[in-house]
Design a protein around this nucleic acid. Structure first.
Length: 194
DNA sequence: AAATAGTCCAACCGCCAGCTG
DNA sequence: ACAGCTGGCGGTTGGACTATT
C-alpha cells in the first residue's frame, strides 16, 4: 500500500486563507517553485505539498489571466479538445495564462452545453442525430485564433501514458474520420516550438 | 421571504511516469 | 532490475453562489 503524500492528520484542508496564500507567495518569490514536498514546512504552512502546488498553479501564479474566456479561447479549446481529448494540461498549455483546472471546469460547465446546443456530441465532436441541425460555423468561422499556434512541447507530448491514453476517439478522427469535417479549420499547427 | 434546484469553481483524490539510489 | 519518492495529471467532489418556484 502506498503511503499518502503527506501526513493528513495535522494538515489544513479546504479553502486557503489570505495568510496562507501570502506565506506561499513569499516563499516561492524567494526560493522559486519546486520541491513541493518541502515547501509547507519551509514556508510554515500546514498544507500538503501537493495542495501548495495546486494553489500556486491554479490561483497564485502571477501570470494567470483569470476572468471570462474570450471567443478565441473558446474556439481554440474546442478545436484542441477535438484533437487531444481530455488532456487538459496540453490544452491549457496553448492558452497563455490559463490553467488545466480552469480549462477543464470551463469545458464541463460551458462548452459541453454549447456544443450540445449546436447538435454536436462534445465527447466525440460529431453531429448528434437527436438534435436539430448544428450551427458549427459559430465557432469554426470567423475566429482567427490561429494566431495562437498549437505546439505542444516534447515534455507534454510524452505524457501519453496509461492514465492519459484515453484520448477520445476524436483524436483518431483527425486521421480518418470524415465526420471531422465538422471542424474544417482543425489543422492547428502541432509542430514543436523551440 | 423561504425553499429548492442549478451552476460554477476551488480543492481533493488516486493513479501514473520519471527519477534516483 | 527494483523499490521508493516526487511531481504532474485527469476525474470528482463539496460548498458557495445564483436563479427559479
Amino acid at each position: 500500500m502506498r503511503k499518502p503524500c503527506c501526513d493528513k492528520e495535522d494538515m489544513n484542508k479546504g479553502s486557503w486563507s489570505q495568510q496562507e496564500d501570502q506565506k506561499l507567495i513569499d516563499y516561492i518569490k524567494k526560493h522559486g517553485e519546486g520541491h513541493w514536498r518541502n515547501i509547507p514546512k519551509a514556508a510554515g504552512l500546514l498544507r500538503c505539498g501537493k495542495s501548495c502546488r495546486l494553489r500556486w498553479i491554479n490561483y497564485l501564479r502571477p501570470d494567470l489571466k483569470r476572468g471570462n474566456f474570450g471567443e478565441d479561447e473558446e474556439d481554440l479549446i474546442i478545436k484542441l479538445h477535438a484533437l487531444l481529448g481530455n488532456r487538459w494540461s496540453l490544452i491549457a498549455g496553448r492558452l497563455p495564462g490559463r490553467t488545466d483546472n480552469e480549462v477543464k471546469n470551463y469545458w464541463n460547465s460551458h462548452l459541453t452545453k454549447k456544443l450540445k446546443s449546436m447538435g454536436i456530441d462534445p465527447n466525440h465532436h460529431r453531429l448528434s442525430h437527436y438534435l436539430s441541425p448544428p450551427r458549427i460555423h459559430e465557432f469554426s468561422q470567423g475566429t482567427t485564433s490561429s494566431a495562437m499556434k498549437v505546439q505542444p512541447s516534447h515534455q507534454q507530448m510524452k505524457s501519453g501514458g496509461s492514465g492519459s491514453n484515453q484520448v477520445s476517439d476524436a483524436g483518431s478522427c483527425v486521421d480518418h474520420d470524415s465526420s471531422c469535417k465538422l471542424l474544417p479549420d482543425l489543422n492547428v499547427d502541432l509542430a514543436v516550438n523551440s
